[in-house]
């Protein structure tokens, strides 16, 4: 995405609005324990509750080992909670499904399919007619700026481009929510912020709800309408952080974000949380 873009994206849903509506995604008292071979049980996640609203970008942030990826995998239906309930549009989540498409940190392009075929893959599984499949794939490939590479095999793509394929593939499949597990974690710094800015464009254009896991503070503040900060032993939501200083706007460029009054305070606040919750000495 090299063309200049608007600095200000369409406004994000107002997080302080009416609470009576049914949230897009709701987690209520979600917990997960593992049983060790000796019969001991380990509580990995305890009592995680939060809502994500329609068209909102919700970020799970926290030190490693806080179970944020496990929470995301439970939303995807790839793991089952031990306690609590998860609902999407009011319906309980049971197992993986097309409506909860996930982008992983590891590259997941199918090597044997071209970019176009990769993006069409999910729609093929779901029996979308050929013509519609092709058009939707072309639309999303253009959205992630890969039109020139539609006929290319993933082997010839860079890491950032592979992640764009994964994002386009998931969105083309029309999920109700886009799940992302540290999608830019394997990328170099420059590619990473380019992808973050691209994500802002995509979220605006595709009008989709996003639940994303990261341990990158700047990334979280940049992308999120709502941050659920998680702590460890057991993993739980420590604090919900709304980047109110963005005033409900979506900022398209990072330098503008960092220049905003209030950014520094929020970053400092989260850094302190990371330090407290991430070090074993001060952990409760």
């Amino acid at each position: 995405m090299s063309q200049p873009m608007d600095d200000v994206m369409p406004s994000a849903p107002d997080p302080s609005g009416d609470v009576a509506e049914v949230p897009k995604l709701r987690l209520k008292g979600v917990g997960k324990s593992f049983r060790l071979p000796r019969g001991e049980t380990i509580e990995a996640i305890a009592n995680v509750s939060f809502d994500a609203r329609e068209n909102e970008v919700c970020v799970l942030l926290g030190p490693s080992g806080c179970g944020k990826s496990t929470v995301l995998r439970m939303v995807a239906g790839l793991e089952q909670p031990t306690t609590g309930e998860l609902t999407l549009d009011g319906e309980p989540i049971v197992g993986p499904d097309q409506e909860r498409g996930m982008v992983f940190q590891a590259y997941t392009s199918f090597d044997w399919l071209t970019v176009q075929q990769n993006v069409e893959y999910g729609m093929r599984l779901n029996h979308v007619p050929r013509q519609e499949r092709r058009e939707r794939a072309e639309h999303f490939i253009e959205l992630v700026g890969l039109s020139r590479f539609a006929g290319t095999y993933p082997r010839h793509l860079s890491g950032g481009m592979k992640q764009r394929v994964a994002i386009a593939r998931t969105l083309a499949n029309a999920p109700a929510i886009l799940l992302m597990d540290e999608p830019f974690g394997a990328l170099d710094a420059q590619t990473r912020w380019q992808m973050q800015e691209l994500m802002m464009d995509i979220v605006a254009a595709a009008n989709t709800t996003v639940l994303m896991v990261t341990h990158d503070i700047e990334e979280a503040i940049f992308l999120a309408d709502r941050i659920e900060f998680m702590s460890r032993h057991p993993g739980r939501v420590h604090e919900e952080i709304i980047p109110a200083f963005k005033q409900g706007r979506r900022i398209g460029q990072k330098e503008e974000l960092i220049g905003l009054a209030g950014y520094g305070d929020m970053e400092r606040h989260i850094l302190r949380l990371m330090r407290e919750q991430g070090s074993d000495e001060t952990a409760p």
Binding site: A76, F110, N173, L179
Partner: peptide, 22 residues
């Protein structure tokens, strides 16, 4: 790789579809 299979699962793939196509 498990991620390839899980990707297909979250795209709505059924067990046998994933066996054949992934």
């Amino acid at each position: 790789r498990a991620e390839l299979i899980e990707t297909a699962m979250t795209l709505g793939g059924k067990r046998w579809q994933i066996l054949w196509t992934v």
